[in-house]
Write a protein that binds this DNA or RNA. Structure first.
Lengths: 252, 252
DNA sequence: CGTCCTCTTGACGGCTTTCAATAAAAGTGG
DNA sequence: CCACTTTTATTGAAAGCCGTCAAGAGGACG
């Protein structure tokens, strides 16, 4: 079995969205129809570079990837960890130029989606268009939470928040996942995600271990005391309750 | 004249969106029809509190407001400054509970929009639904830029970026605005937006003044050297070029 | 089996915060 | 319009969190 998740149903995206909303078969087919042929990337591969011309987005079928921006001084800010079922590179819907780089953190499989083909979705399936809008709002809230994390919490809290957010998102697609999971980020990558240096990430990870909140073996992470970790992190799990009640009815 | 912008056309939202896309009269009417009667708030008024039940969003007709979250230790992270023409509280499209507090920074006028009424927009005007989605993606990019600012740049750069982002957004609705504008944030609010303390904001503002990049008089800010300020800030102006070409045609 | 990457640890330095005190400005009520 | 209070801006000194630099160990990979 693939450690980092993989396609189970006809489309990974349909499976993910099925957790938020009961899709009709026509809707599922509509989503599936806009996905192009799957592409495979090896760990470390650059999928898209900031400032590249970008006319397509991607659905993550398996594996993890990172989106990031580079600053003038060479430092890197990781914007988000992308897991199976995620859509990545959505910003091409607003800009012709890629606003972020995408790199494969593990071996990944992606399905490309032409941004031009999104318009069919909005025209033929208004409910799906509204769902995409709803998901975009949820992603904005997630970014806002990270903004508060970087702006107003300590180094230890930021690392703890990254761990908790990752496990919460993994559980959306894998309900059986409890406290232990593969976590393939280097400490430098954790630092680039949390606005810290690799050295200080190391110290904070060891502190969390010494306090009995987490355990590490190789790239495997185990959460030992999730409640206390959430307190340390100031973490709010938002993935539980999306409100889809206001969406229009599916097209018949 | 209102210093902080105000309604000029029939709807402030329609005017704003008209800068991105040429709306048909039916589309403009559709937007206008979902707006409820205008509400007025005094400076400092709390419009919505985090965790309140939230079923409506707002269009800013005039004035400025802030969205923010409070952390357990009482510290505050300002998520965004909201200017005339902005939609605020959109996260209610994804959550029934408000994810952020909204407070009036100046006297403001808002038009409420029931989130349930958005569904008509998606059904009857797919292009408008797609436009809302597009704007949400642009807002995600803006949040990502701020994430990089807080995570990877110095205090001085963060303050400079806030100033530049504000003036760039003001210019969207007010093309004549050049270098001087009213900036009603206290140094504490600037700090809460940039993840700094008020004391350090003060030092950074003075440094920017001493370096001849900005000037201050009362709440009026003047940018003296925008290019150098942008270098200091590591700032990218994204508000210039949104790609609306992929949107479906307007409904006839 | 050598090279490169990653993790780890210590010492030191700096950016930012904290604490404190004062001045200036704004708001309030008589 | 003037006292009075509260908020905001300013400045200095000291402390602390995190970054930088450096060096060594362990592991992955070819």
């Amino acid at each position: 079995m693939d450690l980092f998740g993989g396609r189970v149903s006809e489309s990974c995206l349909v499976e993910r969205l099925g957790h938020y909303l009961r899709l009709t078969s026509r809707e599922a087919a509509a989503f599936a129809s806009i996905e192009g042929p799957e592409r495979v990337y090896r760990r470390g591969a650059m999928i898209r570079r900031e400032h590249d011309r970008a006319q397509e987005l991607y659905v993550v079928n398996s594996g993890w990837l990172l989106s990031f921006v580079l600053l003038d001084d060479g430092s890197r800010q990781i914007l988000r960890l992308h897991l199976p079922g995620d859509m990545v590179g959505l910003s091409c819907a607003a800009f012709n130029e890629a606003t972020e780089s995408l790199v494969a953190l593990t071996d990944v499989k992606l399905s490309p989606v032409e941004k031009a083909s999104l318009n069919r979705l909005f025209v033929e399936h208004p409910r799906l268009g509204a769902l995409l809008f709803l998901i975009a709002q949820a992603e904005k809230v997630s970014l806002s939470d990270r903004l508060a994390s970087l702006g107003r919490t300590s180094a230890k809290a930021r690392v703890a928040a990254l761990i908790l957010d990752t496990v919460a998102r993994l559980r959306v697609m894998n309900a059986e996942l409890r406290d232990s999971f593969a976590f393939p980020l280097t400490q430098e990558e954790i630092g680039d995600a949390t606005g810290l240096t690799a050295v200080h990430v190391n110290r904070m990870m060891r502190a969390l271990v010494e306090e009995g909140l987490i355990a590490r073996q190789a790239n495997q992470l185990t959460i030992l005391n999730e409640d206390r970790l959430a307190e340390v992190a100031n973490y709010i799990n938002r993935y539980a309750a999306l409100d889809t009640d206001w969406l229009p009815p599916p097209t018949t």
